[in-house]
Nucleic acid binder design. Structure first.
Lengths: 205, 205
DNA sequence: CCATTAATGAACGCCGAGTCCATATAAGCA
DNA sequence: TGCTTATATGGACTCGGCGTTCATTAATGG
C-alpha cells in the first residue's frame, strides 16, 4: 500500500521503507550527505539529526557506525574533498617546501575547506574520538610526508643535520594553522613563502 | 519573614531570594564560579545552566551580560588565572625569546591552563562572539607585545631588518599552538628552545 | 523458497539553549 | 525618612538535539 516509488533526482535520497539495507549503499549516502552539509553550512549546522534527515537514514544507523559527531564529520570531509596526499621531490628543498606550504595556504584561505578544517580542529578539542581520528588520519600522515621530505634533504646535505625535521614542520604548517585559528593576521601566499625563507636563511643579523 | 541570613562559608554562594541585587556582587560570584568550573571540569561541562547553578544565579542574568557561552568562559578564565602581561627586554633578543616561549610552553603543558586555552580556541571556531573576544583580548595583545620586542631588536641591529616580526610570532608561538591543538608531537621546553634556535641561525646547510 | 539474521525507523526521556513575565528589591526623589 | 519608580531577577516554558530502546522488515544463505 505504500506507494513511494519516486525517482531520485539528485542529491536528495528518497525515504525508503524499513528493514535491512545493503551497508555500502547506506554508507555512501551518509558520507555524501555529511560532506555536502559540512561544506555548505559548516560545523554548527552539522548535527546528527540533520545528517540523518538529509541522508534519509535513521540516527540509529549513524550511532552504530560512528562514535561521535566529529568522526562522522571527518569522514564526510574526506569523502567530499578527496585529498591527494603527495609531497613531490624535485631535489630543490626550498622550492618544494615553498610550493607545498603555498598550496596549503591556498587550500585554507581560498576554499571552504579552511573553515571546515578549523571547525574540525576546534571540535576535536572536546571530542576525544575526533581528536584521535584527526591525529591518525589527517595531521599524522601529512606530518610524516613532510618530515620524510625534510629528512631526505638532510641526507643530501641541503639542510643542517642537527635540525629536527619535526620541529620545522611546526614552524611551517603550524604557523599557518595559527593564522587560521587565531586570525589576527591574514593568511596569504606571500606569508607562506616568507615562512620558508625565514627558516632557511635565519633571521639573526 | 525570610530568615535567610547565613554566613557564606567559601565558594558556595547561598541562594538569595528574588529581586534586584548589586550588579558587582553578582558579577563577581559568576566569574568566580565560571573560572572554577572551567579549570575543574573543562569546557565540556561548562554549560550556561551549570554556571548559573554553581553561582546561584539565574540564566537570565548570564544571558543579559554575556552574548555566548564562550565569552562567559573567557571572562571566567581571565578572572581565574590573573594573567600577567609582560615581555621583558634584557637587551639579549635570543635569551628573551627563549625565556618567553619556554614560559609559554610551561603554561600550556604544565598547568590546566593548556587544556582550557585549547578548548577556548576550539570553541571560538564556531562561536563568533568568542572569536572576536579572544582575538581582541587574548591573542592580539600578546602578539603585539612580542612584535614590539622583535621590532626593538631590529632597531638595535640584532635581527635582519627585512624579516617581518609578525611572521616570526607565528613561527614561534604558532608552532606551540600547533603542538597543543594537534598533539602528534610532545610540547616540551626543549622544543621551545629549538624553535628560537632554528629561526635565528637558519637551517640551510 | 523459506528461515534466520541483523539493520532499520520511529518513539521516548533527558538535558541544555534561549525567552517571557510576574515579582522583589535597589535606587531615585520628595 | 518614606514612598515611587525602574530594573535585575528567578522560575517556568518552548524548542531542538542527543542517545537509546524495541518491534519491524528486508537481505542473506541454505
Amino acid at each position: 500500500m505504500t506507494a513511494e516509488r519516486e525517482a531520485r533526482p539528485t542529491g536528495a535520497p528518497v525515504r525508503r521503507g524499513r528493514g535491512r539495507r545493503p551497508a555500502d549503499e547506506v554508507r555512501a549516502e551518509v558520507l555524501a550527505a555529511a560532506g555536502a552539509l559540512l561544506l555548505r553550512e559548516g560545523m554548527a549546522a552539522f548535527t546528527i539529526e540533520r545528517v540523518a534527515q538529509e541522508a534519509a537514514v535513521s540516527k540509529t544507523t549513524l550511532y552504530k557506525w560512528w562514535p561521535s559527531r566529529g568522526t562522522l564529520a571527518l569522514d564526510g570531509y574526506f569523502h567530499a574533498v578527496e585529498s591527494t596526499l603527495a609531497f613531490p621531490d624535485t631535489g630543490d628543498i626550498r622550492a618544494d617546501l615553498t610550493a607545498q606550504v603555498r598550496a596549503f595556504v591556498r587550500l585554507l584561505a581560498g576554499t571552504s575547506a579552511g573553515r571546515v578544517i578549523a571547525e574540525l580542529i576546534g571540535q576535536a578539542q572536546t571530542d576525544p574520538a575526533l581528536s584521535a581520528a584527526l591525529l591518525e588520519r589527517y595531521s599524522g600522515p601529512r606530518r610524516d610526508l613532510a618530515v620524510a621530505r625534510l629528512r631526505r634533504a638532510q641526507e643530501q646535505g641541503r639542510l643542517r643535520a642537527d635540525a629536527d625535521p619535526r620541529i620545522l614542520v611546526d614552524q611551517l604548517w603550524g604557523a599557518c594553522y595559527h593564522r587560521l585559528l587565531l586570525p589576527n593576521e591574514p593568511l596569504t601566499e606571500e606569508f607562506a613563502a616568507r615562512l620558508v625563507d625565514n627558516l632557511l636563511r635565519g633571521v639573526a643579523a
